[in-house]
Design a protein around this nucleic acid. Sequence first.
RNA 1: CGGGGUAUAGUGCAACGGUAGCACGAGUCCUUUGGGAGGAUUUAGUCCCAGUUCGAAUCUGGGUACCCCGACCA
Length: 415
Amino acid sequence: MKQSQLFTKTLRQAPKDEKCLSVRLLLRAGFVAKLSAGVYVLLPLGLRALQNIQKIISQEIENIGGQRLLMSVLIPKKNWQQTGRWKTFEELYKVKGKNNQEYGLGSTHEEVVVPLVQKYVFSYKDLPCYVYQIQTKFRDEIRVKSGILRTREFDMKDLYSFHTNEKDLDRYYEKVKKTYFKILKRVGLKAQTYLCLASGGSFSKFSHEFQTITSAGEDLIHICQNCGLAINQEIKQGYPKCPQCGKKEFKKEKAIEVGNIFKIKTKYTEPFDFQFVDKDGARKLVIMGCYGIGPSRLMGTIVEVHNDKKGIIWPKEAAPFDVHLIQVENSQKVKKEAEKIYQNLQKQGIEVLYDDRDKTAGEKFTDADLIGIPVRIVVSERTLKTNSVEIKERNKQETKLVRISHLSQFLKSYV
RNA sequence: CGGGGUAUAGUGCAACGGUAGCACGAGUCCUUUGGGAGGAUUUAGUCCCAGUUCGAAUCUGGGUACCCCGACCA
C-alpha cells in the first residue's frame, strides 16, 4: 500500500475528550474513527490489524477442532423467551420489524447455536461437536468506556462445545485454556495475561477469565505470588488462600478481561430440551461449554500494553503491515529505487506500507513511529551510496545498513 | 441509572456582555527534504431551542452530545 493513497492521515493531537491511551493512539494513527459513544469505525489500518488478530484466533481454534460458521445478528424474540433472557438480559438491543416481529440483536449466541446444533446432532456418535464464529456483537451497555475496550458494538469470537458428559467437557475446557494462551502469545499479550478465577454462575464453581494487566483495565485481580493464578476481586473474599497452591501472598492489579471460558453444562440445552441418545440407549441432555475472546478488545489491549511516547509498537503478527518502507530526500533516484524495493518485497509476499509522500523525513519518521509497524526500511541518497537500505525495528534504538541485494534474505528473520 | 465535568474551524487552544482570533491541518504557487521545514495566498467555527439585553460564544432556563467516577459487564 502506498501511503500517498491511504485516505487516512495521522493527527498531531487526539481529541481532548478521549482519555484512554490506546484509543488516543489508534485515533491519531488512523486505525479507528469514532462515530458515537461506544461505536467505532475500523479504518483500513485498523481493519488490517483486526483481521490479523482474527486470523490468529481462527487458526488456533480450528487446531482444536472448531468449525467456523456465521450465525445471524437478528435473533427472534421466541428464542430469547425460551431461555428467559428476553426479560433478564439488560443489555439486549430489541428491534421491531414491519409486521411487529421482534428481535434481539446478537449479544451472545446460545439461543441460536443450541437449537441449530440440535438439528444435526442426535446421538453420542455426533458428539463432541465444536462450532465457532467471529462476529459483531451488540450490547446496550449502561456505560461505555475506555475507547474500544468497552463498546456497544464489538467483535467477538464465540466458540461453543457440545459433549456427552462432563468429563469430556473438562477435557476440552483445558484444551481451550491452553489454546487461548497460544493466541495471547501470538498477539503479544501472554506475558501480562493471567488465568483468573471468576464467578461461575450457578452451574459450576468457577469460570476462568484471561485478564491482561493494564491500568485501563476494569477489573481488580489478585495474583498469587507463588503460582501465578489470579482471583477476581468479585470472588476474592471467599479465597483467602490460593485455591491452587494454598499460599496467601497476592498482588493486586488492574486488568482487562480479554477472554473467558465457561462450563455452562445444561443451562441452555435444557430450555431447548437438546438431548442425545447415549451408548446405553438412554436420552440425556447435551453438556455445553462456551468460550469467548474479543478481537477488537484484544486490539485495544495490545495498543494499551505496547506503546511508547512516540506511538504504537505492534507485535509482529498483529501489525497492519510487515514493514514500513520510507523514501527520504525525494530525488528521482531515491524514488525509483524505493519503488523497485516496494515491488520486490510485495512479490515475496511481504506486506509493505510504502511512504512515497512528498514530505520531510522528520514527518515520515514521526508518522512511522506513531503507526508502529515493526520494521522500518529507509531508502535515501545516503543509503544508496552503498547500495543499501537502513533497517530499524520499532522497539529498538539501533539501525542497521543492509545491502539491497541481501534485503529479502535479511528480512526473513524479521517478518 | 446516580454523581461530577465539558461543548468555539477538521484537531488543539484564545476572546471583560461590544469587530470571533491563534497554532496545526487542508487548497494553490515557489523554495525545501535524515526526526513534524520556510515564504506568499486561500479555506473553514460559537452544539440545539428559548429567554434577558440596544447588543450573547459569554448571562438565565430547557434540551442534546461527549468525557470521567460509581453500579453493571466480553
